[in-house]
Simulated scan of single mutants.
Amino acid sequence: MLFEAETWVAVAFLILLGVFGYFGVHRTILQALDHRRDRIQKELDDARRLKDEAVKLVAEYRARRESAEREAQDIVESAKAEAERIAVEAKAKMEDFVARRTKSAENKIAQAEMQAIADVRAAAADAAVYAASSVLSQTVRGQIADSLLDKGIKDVREKLN
């Protein structure tokens, strides 16, 4: 057992551990492990903090998006209401315009009819006066003819106009 390689490996290992213990290598290794643990813990804390910030940002952006969607919906509804109001207003204006134009056209037609009637009456009166004057001038002569002619023309004009 004294000459076996495993024994000497175990003895060398124990001597190595003793040398390490004497020079304080175990403390250095423990410090390195502690530093590594602290660094990993810090990274985990940073990761948690970043995760919390990301969750907050996601919630904030969702709230902003919902707010923007509500605002967009309000704008769309407002635009629809405004468009309907403008359409109703335009329809009312168009109906008013058509009614005024119709009334104006009816007035013009009525004036034209009255003018035509007046023109026809004047033409008829002139024709009657001309006919009466030519009949009377051929049948009646003198002062009586002139007074009858004037009276007849006056009567015809009053009745026809």
Rank of each mutant, 00 (worst) to 15 (best):
E66G: 05
V140Y: 01
G152W: 05
V9A: 09
V58A: 14
E77K: 10
D150Q: 13
A10G: 04
A63M: 06
R141T: 15
N161I: 01
A123D: 13
E4Y: 06
I75W: 07
L2S: 09
A145D: 09
E69L: 14
I40S: 04
E113V: 05
E106W: 10
V19K: 02
F23E: 02
T7I: 14
F97Y: 14
A63L: 13
D119N: 04
K93E: 12
F97L: 13
G152R: 05
R85M: 02
A63K: 09
G18E: 05
A118N: 04
R70V: 11
D52E: 13
F3D: 09
A132H: 07
M114E: 15
L148E: 11
D96N: 11
E158Y: 03
R27L: 01
Q73A: 15
S133Y: 03
I29H: 01
E66W: 06
S78A: 14
L14Y: 03
A72C: 00
K42W: 03
D150A: 14
I75R: 15
R36M: 04
Y22V: 07
T102N: 11
R85E: 08
Q115T: 08
R101N: 03
H35A: 09
V25E: 02
Y61N: 08
E69A: 13
E6G: 07
A127D: 03
I144Q: 15
V55G: 06
D155A: 15
V156C: 02
E53D: 12
A72Q: 10
K108R: 09
W8V: 06
K154E: 14
V9E: 07
V140K: 09
I40N: 07
Y130N: 13
S133I: 07
L149M: 14
A127F: 07
A118F: 04
T139L: 14
T139M: 11
R62G: 03
A105R: 02
D46M: 09
F13L: 07
A110K: 15
L136N: 10
T102I: 13
A127Q: 12
A90G: 05
V55W: 02
V58S: 02
K51I: 05
A83R: 06
E106M: 11
E43P: 00
K108H: 08
Y130S: 15
E84V: 04
A99Y: 05
R27V: 05
A116E: 05
S147C: 00
I75C: 00
L33W: 06
K91V: 05
D146Y: 10
F23S: 02
K103L: 14
K56E: 12
K151P: 01
R141G: 03
D119I: 11
R157A: 06
V140M: 10
A99V: 06
A54K: 09
M94A: 15
A54F: 07
V156D: 00
V76C: 01
Q31F: 07
Q73R: 12
R121V: 05
V98A: 10
G152H: 04
R48E: 11
Q143T: 06
A12G: 06
F23N: 03
Q138T: 12
S104L: 08
S137L: 13
D119T: 12
D155M: 15
M1S: 08
